[in-house]
Design a protein around this nucleic acid. Structure first.
Length: 350
DNA sequence: AAGACGGGGCG
DNA sequence: CGCCCAGTCTT
């Protein structure tokens, strides 16, 4: 039995039963693929179910306000996925009558759809013979063929793309692609690969020389930046001051509290000196540090402090900020960092 | 080619 | 704490 056949047999016996595997509906496949970008199945699954339920067809998604999409996306991270998904849904509905492109080339033109996702949709929904290349496939192929090229390089991308397409089972690209990724997720894992259960074991060059853990080769990553942020929870009667985060940084489109920021650790007095020109310093208000948290992102470590300010006089806000009623707060999409604070703050009102 | 973009799980 | 995850977009 050849490699492709062994792989397919293994897959049929061992695959997980996941909801997006029981459909050829390109919209649902697209939805699942966007959600699963850089995201584990267990983390993305509830979001897929939520979106599929709320927006059963692309038309209902296209009609949704961005704030609603981002609220549903809350907690999943990489929020540009949600924003791009909405834009793409609108384009498909308005300019193509709601019909998804049915091939790799046209799929690739859409916002949020790169080489991986285009190949995934083209093969899963339309059985087009294009190989997917994700983190799993990189790992499987780098071990199988013993490729020492760092997978970040553009040369490696071409090389692996060629290898993946040579390895592709042209008779059943959809199942083959699923099987490659499932193999990477269940057997050919980064740390403890279960090589003894692997259907490709006999021909895997890394296994033969027992060097599985050396692959894939990766370049070192940049060190994350430290940010020290003081958040200010302005409360006036039943309202709180918020703003919608602008484009060009993290959490675009989500809501946030007004804040000050520094590159070094800063204490309460210094924050208020820095903010002395701001509205909260001038009037007699109660200021209280209520919460501290270190929030880890891929490229930055945020050391956040939350100060609560119970305003006696209603401060004038900046142009981009506004007052919202507390009972409207749950409708706004916020970062995990802010939601962890709000959960605490709303549970014990002062 | 290199950075930016989230959050969670695991050893 | 470091690494990784069904990647894509921007510069």
């Amino acid at each position: 039995m050849n490699n492709q056949q062994s792989l397919l047999n293994w897959y049929q016996l061992n695959k997980r039963d996941l909801p997006w595997r029981n459909t050829q509906n390109p919209y649902l496949i697209w939805l699942s693929e966007i959600i699963l970008q850089q995201t584990r199945v267990n983390q993305g699954l509830p979001y897929f179910l939520k979106f599929a339920q709320k927006f059963p067809q692309i038309e209902s998604l296209a009609a949704a306000p961005e704030d609603e999409v981002l609220k549903l996306w809350q907690g999943l991270g990489y929020y540009s996925r949600g924003r791009n998904m909405l834009k793409t849904a609108q384009i498909i509905v308005l300019s193509n009558g709601g019909k998804f492109p049915d091939n790799y080339h046209d799929l690739l033109k859409l916002k949020g759809i790169g080489p991986y996702t285009a190949a995934a949709i083209a093969s899963f929904a339309y059985n087009q013979a294009v190989a997917v290349l994700d983190g799993n496939v990189f790992r499987v192929l780098s071990r199988f063929y013993l490729i020492s090229e760092p997978i970040q390089s553009s040369f490696a991308k071409k090389l692996f793309n060629q290898l993946a397409n040579e390895f592709l089972n042209k008779d059943n690209p959809a199942l083959h692609n699923q099987a490659m990724m499932e193999l990477g997720a269940l057997i050919c894992t980064p740390l403890k690969p279960a090589c003894l259960e692997c259907p490709l074991q006999q021909n895997c060059l890394a296994f033969i020389q027992n060097s599985q853990l050396q692959f894939p080769i990766k370049l070192a990553k940049a060190k994350p930046k430290n940010r020290f942020i003081a958040y200010f929870h302005f409360q006036f009667n039943s309202q709180i001051a918020v703003f919608r985060r602008p484009s060009g940084g993290i959490w675009e489109g989500l809501y946030d509290l007004p804040y000050l920021e520094s590159e070094e650790k800063t204490d309460a007095n210094s924050w208020f000196e820095k903010g002395s020109k701001k509205k909260w310093y001038s009037s007699n208000q109660i200021i209280d540090l209520v919460f501290e948290k270190k929030h880890i992102l891929t490229h930055q470590h945020i050391y956040a402090q939350f100060y609560r300010i119970n305003c006696i006089n209603k401060p004038i806000l900046n142009f981009d900020e506004s007052w919202v009623e507390y009972n409207q707060l749950p409708k706004l999409g916020v970062s995990k960092l802010l939601s962890s604070y709000l959960e605490l703050a709303m549970a014990e009102p002062k």
